[in-house]
């Protein structure tokens, strides 16, 4: 069952701030589509500024698209506003990168976690809410002894568990996770990734998982969308993307992965990044692409039937 589908989303930000006069409008998301099934994890990867977070905010209706459609559990919610939208918000919830910033330092943990219930379960009594918080914290591997403490009394990993509990309390069908483990140590990261897997197995929750760490993505995701300059340039199953990707940008991202053992130094990577920046016309990746041809200047950026937006895809992918 499709729990989240977006079609041809576009979002342009007007030039702002001190560069208003000289600045260009920023096309942050261009013709982006994807479909997320219950129980599935779709990862969005790409460099800083490629439009990952904006795509997520559009999908969550925290930001209105210039064009395109958004479906939650099959229902078109693109034009819903106000109370109509609020009522449906429990469907899709978010976990942020920085567990410090996302919790109110003056609120007790149980109050922070219970916030969503105020809106979505006004029928519940205070006692019912506390019970629900305790149960949700337990699901996230925290016992109820911390309910009346404040965020600063918890470690980074515990705070991220609290952040997850806070999103889960309204029983969403989709969780958007924007770099949820990037601020954590590997040891704590492992705990959180295991927790997410376990929750998904038990609840059939779907994840939209934003990350720049490809090892994490490979571990957690079923499918991957690679974004560059606001566009999805390649999408596919994890095994296909990591095994034999077709887009030169995906290849460059994979090549930039850290090695795992000193013996892999000088592993003879084909370094295929030749320049910097991006093109406003034709294929956006042209300035960096070692395989660019004249015809790339007129490319429309559309994904082909294999899920790759390139006129000259790398061989090896059928």
């Amino acid at each position: 069952m499709s729990v989240l589908r977006v079609e041809q989303l576009n979002k342009t930000f007007a030039a702002g701030g001190m560069f208003k006069a000289i600045g260009k409008a920023k096309r942050a998301v261009i013709d982006t589509s994807f479909d997320l099934q219950a129980g599935e994890t779709l990862a969005i990867v790409g460099e800083s500024g490629s439009g990952k977070s904006t795509t997520a905010r559009l999908a969550m209706q925290l930001l209105a698209p210039d064009s395109g459609q958004i479906y939650w559990a099959g229902e078109n919610v693109t034009h819903l506003r106000g109370a109509e939208l609020r009522r449906r918000r429990s469907h899709i919830q978010m976990v942020f990168q920085d567990p410090y910033a996302s919790l109110n330092p003056r609120m007790k943990i149980w109050q922070s976690v219970a916030e969503g219930l105020r809106v979505h379960r006004p029928d519940m009594t205070n006692i019912q809410r506390r019970d629900k918080v305790a149960a949700t914290l337990a699901l996230c591997g925290l016992d109820d002894s911390g309910m009346d403490r404040y965020p600063h009394q918890f470690s980074g990993g515990q705070r991220q568990r609290i952040g997850i509990a806070r999103a889960l309390i309204v029983e969403p069908k989709v969780l958007v996770l924007d770099e949820p483990v990037s601020a954590l140590d590997v040891s704590v990261q492992a705990q959180i990734l295991n927790l997410l897997k376990e929750i998904q197995l038990n609840t059939n929750l779907a994840y939209l998982f934003i990350s720049h760490d490809l090892s994490v993505v490979r571990h957690i995701a079923d499918r991957v969308s690679v974004m560059f300059a606001g566009q999805v340039v390649e999408q596919g199953k994890v095994a296909d993307i990591f095994g034999h990707c077709a887009h030169p940008y995906t290849r460059a991202l994979l090549d930039a992965r850290p090695i795992t053992h000193p013996d892999e130094r000088n592993r003879g990577d084909v370094v295929m990044v030749i320049g910097e920046g991006m093109s406003d016309t034709g294929c956006a990746y042209q300035p960096r692409c070692a395989f660019k041809q004249d015809s790339c200047a007129a490319f429309d950026g559309k994904l082909n039937s294999q899920g790759c937006a390139c006129l000259y895809p790398l061989s090896g992918r059928s």
Partner: peptide
């Protein structure tokens, strides 16, 4: 050993990652 073992890049596919409990 534990710190090196909990890296996702060296983990076994489909298996939970090894963790170090506590802080």
């Amino acid at each position: 050993r534990a710190l090196m073992g909990c890296r996702p890049e060296v983990s076994l596919p489909g298996k939970p990652l090894p963790v170090i409990s506590g802080q």
